[in-house]
Design a protein around this nucleic acid. Structure first.
Ligand SMILES: [Mn+2]
Ligand SMILES: [Mn+2]
Ligand SMILES: [Zn+2]
Ligand SMILES: [Zn+2]
Lengths: 133, 133
DNA sequence: ACTGTTATTGCAACTCATTTTCAATAAGCC
DNA sequence: GGCTTATTGAAAATGAGTTGCAATAACAGT
């Protein structure tokens, strides 16, 4: 029962994500991966990301256009992002304002909460200065 | 300058959304629309939804798979949903816990907040009973 | 009601992220 | 090294959403 194999491709995907200090889409990861491992297939990148997400090593979010983004999961704090509509920069928003809220909901509605998705949109300081927003 | 025309198709999309007490995807709306107006085009549904969203009559959210859902906008309160992973039911979550949070962020980071996206996932009471979750 | 302008439509083709299929490959246990 | 099979590469398929364009119909002006 040799369940999981530690392939070059899996290591690469994980290391790209570790070295990039920011969340990346599967497409971005693939483009970087090809530079170091020219025959890697797009599907391989997707499969490994899916895998890493399901075992909790990587966390997944979604852009407004439906495209997923991925980042290394931090065990002892889950993050959300503020996303600038100008430059697309994603700024960590480390304190989750929903921990208590979830508990209240569970209590009052009988709904069993497993997780949530939250992102905040707007314009970063930089873009506001440039575009006078 | 006869900017906007009030077409049958637009009325239909809007009325389907009004009569359904729940958010629907473009696909669901299209399938219902065809029953009453057999030649309506999928693109027409999409175009009208886009239009209604941009003028604030309809609000738009996104499922975990990237598919958009739409519902009639309520002017004086914006809603979020708790979404059951079992039966896909979407339960209104009327009080937004982020109004204050947004202000704090703006103040502390210089980020100009234009909006946010929030949904809570889990299992409704019904599904918990059935599946013993 | 008739006419002309043009916003909107229907349809088909397209885009693009993601998934699937399947034969070929390579991890990792012996 | 040899065997088993998880994983891969390549290509095709999927599916939501978009786009180009000629035909249509809303509606303002008459
Ligand atoms: Mn959170
Ligand atoms: Mn809110
Ligand atoms: Zn910015
Ligand atoms: Zn349910």
């Amino acid at each position: 029962m040799s369940a999981v194999r530690n392939t070059k491709q899996k290591q690469l995907v994980l290391s790209l994500l570790k070295n990039s200090g920011r969340p990346m889409t599967a497409g971005e990861i693939y483009r970087l991966a090809v530079q170091q491992y020219p025959n890697i297939a797009k599907s391989t990148v997707y499969r490994n990301l899916e895998n890493l997400v399901s075992r909790g090593e990587v966390s997944q979010g979604m852009h407004q256009n439906g495209e997923s983004f991925y980042s290394i999961a931090d065990e002892n704090r889950h993050l959300h992002y503020m996303i600038c509509k100008g430059c697309k920069m994603m700024i960590d928003f480390p304190k989750c304002p929903l921990s208590n809220v979830e508990r209240e909901i569970a209590k009052s509605s009988g709904f069993y909460v497993t997780g949530h998705s939250l992102q905040i949109y707007g314009y970063c300081k930089n873009c506001r200065d440039k575009a006078k927003i």
